[in-house]
């Protein structure tokens, strides 16, 4: 795995830690909302993978765009979606990010460049390619990042998108969060190569493997590829090795995991890794960390209580925004 020892400035570390704690707190609360029947259908938690979205989002500049997966609450919050917009959307409320029409799997906020989480595996990759085409044609210097899981690396859209982005030399970063399981199936059972990143060679673009539990490491490696893309040198495939601490979706207790695997990965909790590093560098102590965590938990609870009281969209909204009128 690629390692990079350069420490980020204290403020950046603080921001990343805070964002990861917000994502963790939101995800844990969302699980609770299911049990209260306030969140419907299904949802996919990214607990354990927070360093991926936070490390990548920290690289992005105004005007950059992102498409992502249905395990996308972390991506959305990392990009800057407000907790209110997220929680109201989770509950299908009119004040949600998508006016309640999207739900857990479709978090979208065009105003911050979040072009949408997608519920079809791999479908977000071609869309990101198109957004990057706009950047190249309009010469904005912006990039697009697209998140997907290792399961998506076996779908046609992945290969077609890498190929198209490579021949058009587009400023797009293909970011694979390899959390080892595509739904209930372990990676090795569905994929004959050890690293997805090797597939970059088929398209003549860089492919790198990164420790996805280390937010600083993610930031450094993605930064390098982002700068390259901004210079017009084309796309890259970045594989973040990570792990989801929960099951695939709300009812999955993940019985398919070998005994002891989760416990090993819990030792590499992305929040723990950054926290300990900050403590070692004298930027944080246990008391401050606990205060931060508790204050974030309280804020999330407050937002959830607010969202519960928000109105649902009126039924007329069903027929709005199917077409743009005018």
């Amino acid at each position: 795995m690629t390692q990079n020892g350069i420490a980020l400035p204290a403020q950046m570390r603080q921001d990343m830690l805070k964002k990861m704690l917000e994502i963790r707190a939101a995800e844990e609360r969302i699980q609770g909302l299911f049990l209260e029947n306030l969140v419907r259908g299904t949802t996919h938690l990214c607990i354990g993978q927070e360093a991926c979205s936070v490390g990548v989002a920290a690289v992005l500049q105004p005007g950059d765009t992102m498409t992502c997966t249905y395990r996308g609450h972390g991506h959305a919050l990392a990009m800057g979606m407000t907790m209110k917009a997220l929680m109201a959307e989770m509950m299908g409320k009119a004040s949600g990010a998508c006016k309640g029409k999207g739900g857990s799997m479709h978090m979208t906020d065009a105003s911050i460049g979040l072009l949408g989480a997608n519920a079809i595996v791999g479908a977000q990759l071609p869309i990101a390619v198109g957004a990057a085409l706009t950047s190249r044609l309009k010469k904005t210097g912006n990039i697009t990042v697209t998140f997907f899981g290792e399961g998506a690396a076996n779908i046609g859209a992945f290969h077609e998108s890498l190929n198209l982005a490579a021949i058009w030399k587009l400023p797009v970063l293909f970011i694979c969060e390899n959390n080892l399981y595509g739904e209930y199936s372990v990676w090795s059972k569905t994929t004959p190569v050890r690293d997805i990143a090797v597939r970059a060679s088929s398209y003549g673009i860089p492919g790198i493997v990164v420790d996805g539990q280390d937010a600083e490491c993610v930031y450094h490696e993605v930064s390098a590829m982002a700068e390259r893309a901004r210079r017009g040198e084309g796309p890259a495939l970045i594989e973040l090795k990570t792990y989801r601490f929960r099951g695939h979706s709300r009812t999955d207790q993940a019985p398919y995991r070998p005994k002891g695997e989760l416990e090993e990965w819990l030792k590499r909790d992305p929040i723990l890794i950054l926290k300990e590093r900050m403590i070692a560098d004298g930027q944080l102590d246990e008391t401050e960390f606990e205060e931060l965590r508790e204050s974030i938990d309280r804020q999330v609870v407050e937002v959830v209580e607010w969202a519960k009281t928000e109105p649902y969209p009126p039924v007329e909204a069903l027929y709005e925004d199917i077409y743009y009128e005018g």
Partner: peptide, 14 residues
């Protein structure tokens, strides 16, 4: 699939 999807990505970005 890729270039029709890319058309969408381009359309929603201007």
């Amino acid at each position: 699939e890729a270039f029709i999807g890319a058309a969408l990505g381009a359309a929603i970005t201007g």
